[in-house]
Design a protein around this nucleic acid. Sequence first.
DNA 1: CAATTTTGCTATAGTCAATAGCGATCCGGA
DNA 2: TCCGGATCGCTATTGACTATAGCAAAATTG
Lengths: 141, 141
Amino acid sequence: MTHIQSNDPLAELPGYVLRRAANAMMGELGARLAAIDLKISDASVLLLIAGRSDMTSSEIGKVLDIQRANMVPLLNRLEAAGLIARQPLDRKSQAIVLTPAGQTRLGEVQAITHAFEADLLARIPDADRPHFMPALKALIG
Amino acid sequence: MTHIQSNDPLAELPGYVLRRAANAMMGELGARLAAIDLKISDASVLLLIAGRSDMTSSEIGKVLDIQRANMVPLLNRLEAAGLIARQPLDRKSQAIVLTPAGQTRLGEVQAITHAFEADLLARIPDADRPHFMPALKALIG
DNA sequence: CAATTTTGCTATAGTCAATAGCGATCCGGA
DNA sequence: TCCGGATCGCTATTGACTATAGCAAAATTG
């Protein structure tokens, strides 16, 4: 349980609080996704390639900010679990697509993700909620 | 360079954006602190024990959310760098205090941290800025 | 067609956090 | 006072995750 103490002089530093909030939320999401045997990065891939059949490993990595080399064990794991398949696009590239089992699992991911995002937003006071996403987006890129 | 793509369906998920924002900001802070040979957790400890001489390793860990076991190499590193010292409180506990060199380094940490926090907040649109800390704090604990 | 870039991958190393366990010490209640 | 539980600092190990370098093959570009 993460709990900032009142005597913590770092509790007023935005960067520090940002890190703590992200850690707390990702811990929570990870715990929920563990119920369907997926890691956060696994779920991200499933959500990303949903309804598409043209995304290569490198493209997924670019979007999700995961390096080419680190995509390999990730996709191997998803393939071994029967959730994705590799479809040759040409002699060099291959598309990553959902298998039927992957489609099913994607449904569970969407349910968990949707509930999680709703719970996350619900914790934010009404007055602050509309400003949450714009503020975070301004910090990226 | 982190850069959410327009075709990224995850870009509207608060949890995902929160993680990306925290990663981007911590990467930036880590790079700035590397200039004075400190990691983020090192700097956090220095900021926390500033002006105090009664905090034990376990207490620091509780406040910063670092486990006892993981405090050891962290404090060893700071001690080897001559920035902190261990002062016995009784035969079991010891206070972690700044050395004179640690005081000096703390000044640099404060300068870097202050500039970083200012730059971070400056990136957030005026209208959203007052809502940033309250929203994040609501997610912790 | 030559040069460069891209793709998917191997192999490796480093960082970081989590777990379990240990001896010593401290503290609170009977 | 003494016993039992809690706490302290630490060791050792493990697992996740990330970063780097390099490679062969194929695609792309000029």
